[in-house]
C-alpha cells in the first residue's frame, strides 16, 4: 500500500506540481527554503524570446522566407533579371503587335511593348517593396506617435490630433494625394512621403482607441506610482499591448499601399514609366486582360504573395509577442 502510495504521490508531484503549481504549493511557507529542484530559467531578453517563439511557427517562417526571397530579388535585380526591364524587343511582339507567350528567351512572355515580363516583375519588386515597407513604416510611425500622444495625454493635445485625423479621413485621399504629387515632382521618395501622410489616419484612430482603454488599466497606475516617466510608461507599459493591432493594420496596409501606388501610376502620378512597378504593370495590362491575361496575372500574383508573406509574419509576430500564447 505505501509503495503504491509513494508512487502515486510522485506522479502527482510531477503532474500537478510540474510547472505553475510548483510555486503555488511553496507559496504558503514563505520563510521555508524553496524547492531546490525548481527550474531556474536563464534570463533572456524579449527579442530573443520573440525569436524563439517565432521559430516554432511554421507559417510565419514560410512568410519570412518569402519576404527574404523578395528582398534578395529586389536587391540583386540587375544580376537576376534576364533582360533590361525597359528594353523593347522586336521579337517580343507578334506580327500583329501582340505580346508573345512564354519562351526560352522570355520565360513569362512579354508585355504590350515587347518588354520581358519576368525582368519587369523582378525590377518591379524594388518599387513595390520600397513603397509597401517604407510608406507603411512612415504611416505607422506617424499613427503610433499621434495615437499614443492623443490617447495618453488627453486634453487639448487629444482634441487637436483627433480632430486633425477626422478632417484627414473626411478628405478625399486620392484628391489629396493627386494634389500633393502634382505640386511636388513625382519620385519614389515623394511617393513614400505622400502615401505615408495619407495613410496615418486609420492607425492613429486604432491606436488612440486602444490607448484610451489601456491607460485606465491598473498596471498603468502602478507604473505611475512606481515613478515611471510618461515616456517610459508609453514605451514599456502601453506600447507592448499595441503590438497586435499595429501588426494587423500594418500587414493590411502593405497591400493597400502597394495598390495605392498602382492607382497613382495609373493616372500617371506614380512611378514614372518606363520604371516598372507591379501596380503600374497591372494598370498597363488590364486593357488586355482577355487577350493576354498573364500581363495582369503575374504582377497580381506577386502582390498577393507579398501581402500574404507579410500577413503570415505579422500573425506569427503577434503571437510571439504575447507571452500568454507561449503555452498554447
Amino acid at each position: 500500500m505505501s509503495d503504491l502510495c509513494d508512487e502515486r504521490e510522485a506522479a502527482f508531484a510531477t503532474a500537478g506540481l510540474g510547472s505553475e503549481a510548483a510555486a503555488e504549493v511553496t507559496a504558503g511557507d514563505a520563510a521555508a527554503g524553496w524547492a531546490p529542484d525548481a527550474p531556474l530559467i536563464a534570463h533572456r531578453t524579449t527579442w530573443q524570446e520573440v525569436w524563439t517563439r517565432l521559430r516554432r511557427d511554421r507559417f510565419a517562417l514560410v512568410g519570412l522566407a518569402a519576404i527574404i526571397l523578395l528582398v534578395v530579388i529586389a536587391v540583386f535585380a540587375p544580376w537576376i533579371a534576364p533582360h533590361d526591364p525597359t528594353a523593347q524587343f522586336d521579337e517580343g511582339l507578334t506580327m500583329r503587335g501582340m505580346p508573345v507567350g512564354p519562351s526560352g528567351q522570355f520565360p513569362l512572355g512579354t508585355d504590350t511593348l515587347g518588354r520581358d515580363l519576368l525582368s519587369r516583375l523582378i525590377y518591379g519588386a524594388r518599387v513595390s517593396l520600397v513603397i509597401g515597407v517604407l510608406a507603411n513604416g512612415f504611416a505607422l510611425v506617424l499613427g503610433v506617435v499621434f495615437g499614443l500622444t492623443a490617447g495618453y495625454f488627453r486634453g487639448w493635445v487629444e482634441t487637436l490630433l483627433m480632430r486633425a485625423t477626422d478632417v484627414m479621413m473626411a478628405f478625399p485621399i486620392y484628391l489629396f494625394a493627386v494634389a500633393l504629387v502634382s505640386v511636388l515632382r513625382p519620385s519614389l521618395g515623394i511617393l513614400v512621403l505622400v502615401i505615408g501622410i495619407v495613410y496615418w489616419t486609420p492607425m492613429t484612430r486604432v491606436i488612440h482607441g486602444e490607448v484610451l482603454s489601456i491607460r485606465e488599466k491598473e498596471f498603468v497606475d502602478a507604473a505611475r506610482l512606481t515613478g515611471c516617466t510618461s515616456v517610459r510608461i508609453l514605451y514599456r507599459h502601453i506600447l507592448p499591448h499595441l503590438v497586435a493591432p499595429i501588426i494587423v493594420y500594418t500587414s493590411l496596409g502593405i497591400a493597400t499601399t502597394i495598390l495605392f501606388e498602382s492607382t497613382l501610376s495609373y493616372i500617371g502620378l506614380g512611378v514614372q514609366p518606363p520604371t516598372p512597378s507591379w501596380g503600374q504593370m497591372i494598370s498597363e495590362g488590364q486593357a488586355y486582360y482577355l487577350s493576354a491575361p498573364h500581363l495582369v496575372l503575374y504582377p497580381g500574383l506577386m502582390i498577393m504573395i507579398t501581402v500574404l508573406a507579410f500577413n503570415l509574419v505579422g500573425d506569427g509576430l503577434r503571437d510571439a509577442f504575447d507571452p500568454q500564447q507561449r503555452r498554447r
Binding site: M1, S2, C5, R8, A11, F12, A15, G16, G18, E20, A21, E24, V25, A27, G28, D29
Partner: peptide, 26 residues
C-alpha cells in the same frame, strides 16, 4: 488555509484537499 485550490485538470489521486489539509495522512 495553506496553499491554493488544485488545478482541475491535474487532480491528485486521493482527496483533492489533502495537499492543503492539516489532518492529511498517507
Amino acid at each position: 488555509i495553506q496553499g491554493l485550490p488544485p488545478d482541475l485538470s491535474h487532480l491528485p489521486p486521493g482527496c483533492a484537499f489533502a495537499p492543503r489539509c492539516w489532518l492529511a495522512t498517507d
